Simulated scan of single mutants.
Amino acid sequence: MTTTVVPDVTAAADRIRPHVRHTPLLRAEVDGRPLVLKLEHLQRTGSFKLRGALNALLAGERPGQVVTASGGNHGIGVATAAAILGLPATIVVPETVPEGKARRIEAAGARLVRAGTRYAEAAAAAHELAEAPGARYVEAYNDPVVVAGQGTVAAEIVADAPDVDSIAVAVGGGGLAAGVALGSGGRLTVAVEPEGCSCLHQALAAGRPVDARVDSVAASALGATRVGEVPFAVLSGPSVVSRVVGEDEIVAARDRLWDEFRLAVEPAAAVPFAAWLAGQVPGEVPCVLLCGANADWTP
């Protein structure tokens, strides 16, 4: 099986390597089936988002300041990337942002602005702020440079476990899943969403990105109302399949990761594991990508 990754992902890996963790894999057997877990929730910032944010800021001309909108994890990643590079950052979040994520954004040194009750309202406010001279808006997922940065996590998987033949990944706006599809050397990407936040699943059915409702325990991380055009172009390819899981399955999967492995992840990170438990992830040696751990909860 080939382990070649596309050039943009390779270049992204070279750029961000000094600043990110090469997160570990855990091989296990669950219910008599082999499984590889990618522990990306151990990444600096507690999620994969640092990868794309760093690649975006390192790939172009250095801005005077950084602005973005986020439901939480992207904001933490951008705030941390800006701090690493010595840049001021403003992160606009909806008023419904989980307090734990808001706290982590401010702890990274960024200015936190609350605007509206939905991500789209926060994004509109952030774009206005980004019109200031020298400001750079960092997209959460609808940017090929961000997607390439997220793809570096798949490049690590195939380098460390070349026998992996499928990778299950959670989908919000689609940036991580598209990066996995680009960086996995042709392996099957299983793109998994909650039933209540399934913008990719609905877009694939419609043949184009469409608006979708947002109602899930994982909404703070996966609550995009519409999949990005850039990720959709990648995720419409033949090496991607779309799956959805229910709310009870997500919570049960999160709790099982804690009970069985002592892995404390947020609900979004448990979404692909829920699909695997339900038999929705094919492959002789599948990998489940645990994408984040920025939630305050007790098992």
Rank of each mutant, 00 (worst) to 15 (best):
V93W: 10
C197H: 04
S166A: 15
N142R: 10
G173E: 10
V92I: 10
D14I: 09
A124F: 02
W276Q: 01
C291E: 06
G116V: 10
A274Y: 11
V153W: 03
L25G: 02
Q280W: 03
D215H: 13
S239P: 00
A107W: 07
E229P: 00
C287E: 11
R254T: 14
S216C: 05
G77H: 07
S236H: 14
P286Y: 11
R136E: 15
D255C: 02
E128D: 14
V192D: 04
A140I: 05
G279L: 10
A110H: 07
L39H: 05
L204E: 06
E95H: 13
V234T: 15
A83S: 14
G116Q: 07
S236M: 02
F273S: 02
A123K: 14
V36I: 13
F273I: 05
D31P: 00
I91Y: 12
V153Q: 07
P88G: 08
V214K: 08
R104K: 15
L222F: 09
A12C: 01
L200K: 07
P144Y: 13
V227K: 08
T23F: 06
E260K: 06
L289Y: 03
P231L: 14
A82I: 10
R187K: 06
R226T: 15
I76Q: 09
V217N: 02
A89Q: 11
A110V: 07
T68N: 08
T225K: 15
A12G: 02
R226N: 06
A270C: 04
T189M: 09
V145P: 00
G179T: 10
R187T: 12
I250P: 00
G228Y: 13
T96A: 13
A221S: 15
L39A: 08
T298C: 01
A295Q: 13
S166Q: 05
P282E: 09
A154I: 08
T45Q: 03
V227F: 11
G86T: 10
A270N: 01
L263S: 02
E195D: 15
E128T: 15
V6F: 08
P272A: 11
L26Y: 12
T68L: 03
F273R: 02
L235N: 04
V227N: 08
Q150G: 00
